[in-house]
Design a binder for these strands. Structure first.
Lengths: 347, 347
DNA sequence: TTGTAAGCGTTATCAT
DNA sequence: ATGATAACGCTTACAA
């Protein structure tokens, strides 16, 4: 275990600039209580020496690390890319770093150990972990800021309008002439998935359509479960003309099943996803999907963590938005519905 | 900027166990120089108190943080998932954490600042950054272990047999009866991409086939560039019967273009990808692709970083492997080629 | 506006 | 096998 050589420290800079270390510290921390001249002189020295404050030393003194942890259980790979990107964007201009923390097994114990050891500046919880009040409480106890992504019971957390969004999506399909619409739900334990399923039920009821249990199959957000769900749904008689999945991965799975069964999408079967992950536009035909602004939500999560102010984490509402691509065929029952399946938006 | 309360420290444990702090330190660090009894007593106290050593304090004392940084430029999202997973697996059982570090602009300066500030235990460079000798040298200068993923000039780094692998892939297509084979190359500056292109040229030359410049289009590893490359390649006359892309994203782009042009894959056009990322099996038809063991390579990278031994980073060779799915049609020119396009392996 | 001194929680050195 | 003590590089009282 070699000990590497040390580099320019705050003391070197102080000596070279002829001031005290505290003054350097003030400058590092952007304190306004420093004279113009002094500041200029010090900054010159910093530039010359290439001094970079040690994150470890600061962390020790401040009792918190300059990291934000993205905590998830790996069950929904699709949204990770957007969340990572959003968090990274939110950390620009700060000295924060993004730590990836997948958790399995005894989730609470692992999270506690992690926070205990690393004292992150903040923790961002992804569904379904974000739905576990225990984890949020745990962070609070260790006074570590914690932001939960996705719908959460008591209004904490950054979520979007999953339920009405799904209802809007279904209503849109109905306007296009679809009557038999199948649903591939997420894990039954997931609140987000429940909301989306409720939205489906709302809209189907509104339009007085069959929403019997045979039209609803639950998956676990994985591609594989989408394949299986698709298989079940295609056996239903009469066959659904459209299948909506609670995330894009599962929608892709359904598409896979349709393909294997010799069905053409959207001619023989319309398929819609949810979240609008990168996968949606990469598959063929491009998948129509309900866009959930995961990146924006993640960005906001980091902002909350950065904000020193102890504002009680406003329940800011994000809005999902339909992205029409080529996986839905208008059946033309009601000509009013103008959006043609060819209204793809990719270049 | 509140200072959180402190928790159980090494001193508390020392006092409670009636030994010195150094002894606790020895136990934390698995030093063998501790008596049986003492160790037992101390471990009991640790368990009771729930003591967790502070990562910050250790980092300060050891002058290196318990983090490994995954450094990339975001240009090849496809392989990130596998690399992240592999690194995470490699870190299991250690107290290392994974930090995501996308770099843009003045890459060298940013990397230097990052390493200076965080003193990571190691850095893993992804292509094309891994091809920049400057970055590796930079890490060395700051004695930070650095592992480069992908083919690298002087034999450093963990790469796989891109060139022969691509040659094998092309030979396989030829055996299936394909004669006009287009290539979507990666960025021209990328060594990995160059290797793959050379493999293509090798095989085409071997079989005495047309490998004129019109059959080779360079992309930048993005889906969009695949779309564009596909457009160019489909205009070539006579049209290629097969198109090989240097990664799956671009292959998906080609598929997109084929779809828009009304071509059916694989009936009208065979398409093959490279890397075998999750995308490959999620699109329709499932994409035949050359599997590059990114996860295994990433896992090995972390092992190297963990290994205290200063072994000169063996140039361990990884092997790519053809994964046959449904995106290639045998033309039957030479009946000997037995692998039918229906030899998909997904369940 | 600036400086002094005492930590923060761990590890290495050198004793014993 | 174990312990006292001085780092490690920075921050916050509290002065001046």
């Amino acid at each position: 275990m070699q000990i590497p050589p040390s580099r320019v420290t705050i003391n070197d800079v102080a000596r070279l600039a002829g001031v005290s270390t505290k003054t350097i510290s003030r400058i590092i921390n952007q304190s306004p209580l420093v004279g113009e001249e002094t500041r200029a002189r010090v900054e010159a020295v910093i530039a010359e020496t290439g001094f970079v404050p040690s994150a470890q030393a600061r962390a020790l003194a401040l009792r918190r690390n300059f990291i934000v942890a993205l905590v998830h259980d790996g069950s929904d790979r699709g949204i990770m890319e957007a969340v990572e990107a959003g968090m990274l964007r939110g950390m620009e201009g700060s000295d924060l770093s993004l730590v990836l923390r997948p958790l399995q097994g005894n989730v609470a114990a692992h999270l506690r150990a992690f926070v205990d050891q690393h004292r992150p500046s903040g923790v961002v919880l992804l569904p379904p972990l974000s739905e576990m009040d225990e984890l949020a409480r745990l962070c609070e106890d260790m006074d570590t800021r914690c932001v939960r992504l996705g719908k959460v019971r008591d209004g904490h957390g950054l979520g979007c309008d999953d339920r009405p969004a799904m209802a809007v999506l279904i209503a849109w399909l109905v306007r296009l002439g679809h009557r038999r619409i199948g649903l591939v739900g997420g894990p039954e334990s997931s609140l987000t998935a429940q909301q989306r399923e409720l939205g489906y039920l709302d809209a189907m009821a509104d339009h007085d359509l069959d929403r019997g249990p045979s039209l609803i199959v639950s998956g676990d957000n994985s591609f594989e479960s989408g394949i299986e769900a698709g298989r079940l749904l295609l056996e239903v008689s009469p066959r659904p003309t459209a299948i909506v999945a609670c995330n894009d991965e599962m929608a892709a799975g359904v598409m896979q099943t349709a393909g294997r069964a010799g069905l053409t999408v959207p001619d023989d079967l319309s398929i819609v996803g949810f979240d609008d992950t990168p996968l949606a536009e990469r598959i063929w035909p491009p998948l129509t999907s309900m866009r959930v602004p995961w990146a924006e939500m993640a960005r906001e999560a980091v902002s909350i963590i950065r904000a020193a102010a102890e504002q009680p984490q406003a329940d800011r509402a994000f809005t999902a938005e339909l992205v029409v691509r080529n996986s839905v065929l208008p059946l033309g029952d009601q000509a009013g519905a103008a959006v043609p399946s060819s209204a793809a938006q990719s270049g």
